[in-house]
C-alpha cells in the first residue's frame, strides 16, 4: 500500500514537474516570440511609427529612448494599472510594459512614464538607477520620446509613504508660472545641480521607477524640453 502511494506521488510529481517545465518553455518561447515581435517593430522602422505599431496594439503611444540605457515601447490606457503586469499582446507579464500616465495628452506639460526595475533582472527601467551617478548623467543626457528631445535635468528620489511633493505627478498646469514653480521646486529636490534655466523650459518628461532596494521609494529622472 505504501509503495503504491509512493508511486502515485512520484507520478504526480513528474506530471507537475513536466507541466512546470512545459510552462517555462512556453513562457520562454512566448517571450522569445514577444521580443522577436517587438524587435520586428523596432527594426521595421528606426523611427518607430506609432500608427503602424498601433496595428499590433492600439495602446501603443510611443517609444522612449535613451541611447545605451533604455529603448522601450510606451502604452497608455485610461488608468495607470493595466500595463503594470501586462505585455503588449495583452498577456500577463510580471514585468509589465512602460506606460504613460493616463492623464497625459497633447496639452500636458509633464509627461510621466512608469516602468519596472529590478535588482536581479534588467527590466525596462532598471537602467535608470544608474542615473544616481553624476558621470552617468553626463554620459547619457538626452531622452527621446514622441519625436521630442529632452535634456536630462533632475534626478531625485521620493518615498511614497512619507512626505513628498506630489506636484511632480501633476501633468497639467493652469498657468505657465505654476509649471515654472514645479521646476523651481525640482531644483531643490534634485541630487545634482545641473544649472537648469527654468525660464526657457517648455515641457518635461518624468521617468518613474521603483528603487529596487526599497519598495517605498521611487526614482524620478526628469528631462526638460526647451523652446
Amino acid at each position: 500500500m505504501t509503495k503504491v502511494l509512493v508511486k502515485i506521488g512520484i507520478l504526480i510529481g513528474l506530471l507537475l514537474g513536466g507541466f512546470w517545465f512545459y510552462h517555462q518553455q512556453q513562457v520562454k518561447y512566448d517571450m522569445k516570440q514577444y521580443n522577436k515581435k517587438i524587435k520586428e517593430y523596432m527594426d521595421y522602422d528606426q523611427n518607430f511609427e506609432v500608427e503602424k505599431a498601433k496595428a499590433w496594439n492600439p495602446d501603443i503611444v510611443g517609444r522612449v529612448f535613451i541611447d545605451g540605457v533604455i529603448d522601450e515601447v510606451v502604452v497608455q490606457t485610461e488608468n495607470n494599472i493595466d500595463y503594470v503586469h501586462q505585455d503588449l499582446d495583452g498577456n500577463y507579464n510580471v514585468y509589465g510594459t512602460v506606460f504613460q500616465d493616463y492623464r497625459v495628452d497633447d496639452e500636458a506639460s509633464n509627461i510621466i512614464l512608469y516602468g519596472h526595475s529590478s535588482k536581479k533582472k534588467n527590466l525596462v527601467f532598471t537602467s535608470l538607477m544608474k542615473y544616481v551617478d553624476y558621470e552617468f548623467i553626463k554620459a547619457h543626457p538626452r531622452i527621446s520620446y514622441q519625436d521630442q528631445e529632452y535634456e536630462l535635468a533632475y534626478v531625485f528620489m521620493i518615498n511614497v509613504h512619507q512626505e513628498y511633493d506630489a506636484m511632480i505627478f501633476e501633468t497639467h498646469f493652469e498657468h505657465a508660472e505654476l509649471f515654472k514653480k514645479l521646476l523651481m521646486n525640482l531644483s531643490e529636490y534634485t541630487m545634482f545641480d545641473l544649472n537648469v534655466d527654468v525660464s526657457s523650459v517648455k515641457g518635461m518628461i518624468t521617468l518613474v521607477t521603483c528603487n529596487p532596494s526599497n519598495d517605498e521609494e521611487r526614482l524620478l529622472v526628469v528631462g526638460i524640453k526647451k523652446s
Binding site: E78, N79, N80, I81, V84, V94, Y95, G96, D101, Y102, R103, Y114, G115, H116, S117, S118, K121, L123, F125, V160, A166, F169, E170, T171, V208, T209, C210, N211, P212, D215, R218
Partner: peptide, 20 residues
C-alpha cells in the same frame, strides 16, 4: 488630507508600485 494610493480610482493621480 493626503490621497492614499488607489490605482483603480481615476479621480486621483496615483503613483503605481513599479518594483518587481
Amino acid at each position: 488630507q493626503k490621497i492614499e494610493v488607489d490605482p483603480y480610482n481615476p479621480e486621483y493621480p496615483i503613483v503605481p508600485k513599479m518594483g518587481v
